[in-house]
Amino acid sequence: MQLAVANKIIIPEAVAVKFPDLAVQSTDGRTLNLPLVVPLRNDDHEAGNAVVSQNGDRKSSDLVVPDASLLCLSFRASSHKMAESWSLPFLDAFSSTGNIQVYEVSFIDIWLLSSSLWRRALLKFMRRSDDPQRNVVYSFGDHYYFRQKLRIINLLTGYIYLVDRLGRVRWEGSGSATQEELSSLTACASVLLDAGKTRLDDK
Rank of each mutant, 00 (worst) to 15 (best):
M1V: 10
V5R: 12
A6T: 11
N7T: 02
K18V: 05
F19A: 00
L22K: 07
L22G: 03
A23Y: 05
V24P: 05
Q25C: 08
T31S: 11
T31M: 14
V37E: 12
V38H: 03
R41Q: 10
D43Q: 13
H45K: 11
H45E: 15
A47N: 08
N49G: 08
A50K: 15
V52I: 10
R58D: 04
K59L: 14
S60P: 01
S61G: 02
D67P: 00
L70Q: 10
L71N: 09
F75C: 00
S78C: 05
S79C: 07
S79N: 06
K81C: 05
P89K: 15
F94I: 14
S95I: 06
E104M: 10
D109I: 06
W111N: 14
S114P: 00
S115P: 01
W118A: 07
W118V: 12
R119E: 14
R119A: 04
A121W: 03
A121V: 05
L122I: 09
K124C: 08
K124H: 07
R127P: 02
D130L: 14
N135A: 09
V137Q: 14
Y138E: 14
S139M: 13
G141N: 13
D142V: 12
R147G: 01
R147H: 07
K149H: 07
K149W: 01
K149V: 00
I152N: 00
L155D: 12
L155P: 03
L155I: 10
L156F: 03
I160P: 00
L166G: 03
G167T: 05
E180G: 04
A189D: 11
S190A: 11
S190W: 07
L192Q: 09
L192K: 12
L193F: 03
K197T: 04
L200W: 03
L200C: 02
K203M: 13
